[in-house]
């Protein structure tokens, strides 16, 4: 068992399925069990890809209208 901090709330969590986990790592917890260690490098890479998305369009393309919300039913 280990202690996991959920944005301020600390709970005891079973770490048996993530033997590689170390103090300070981030993890996904479901019903008291850590299921996966979050790959921080991959998280940063994904966010970076999002940030770079459409940069060329923004510089050279037509200015985009704000989001148009589709009618709900």
């Amino acid at each position: 068992m280990g202690r996991v901090n959920f944005g301020g709330i600390v709970k005891d969590v079973c770490l048996a399925y993530v033997p590689e986990i170390a103090v300070g790592d981030y993890t996904i917890v479901h019903v008291g069990f850590a299921l996966s260690k979050i790959d921080e490098e991959s998280a940063q890479k994904t966010l970076e890809t999002f940030r770079e998305m459409g940069l060329l369009d923004e510089e050279f393309g037509e200015p985009e209208a704000v989001e148009t919300v589709k009618e709900t039913t």
């Binding site: 940030r51 998305m53 459409g54 989001e67």
Partner: peptide, 23 residues
């Protein structure tokens, strides 16, 4: 919370929405 709030960013969401509209 780390790795949650970053993935709720409104500005990046509009970028993704724009990409999707172009596809």
């Amino acid at each position: 919370m780390k790795y949650l709030t970053e993935f709720r960013d409104g500005e990046l969401a509009s970028k993704l929405a724009r990409e999707i509209r172009q596809i």
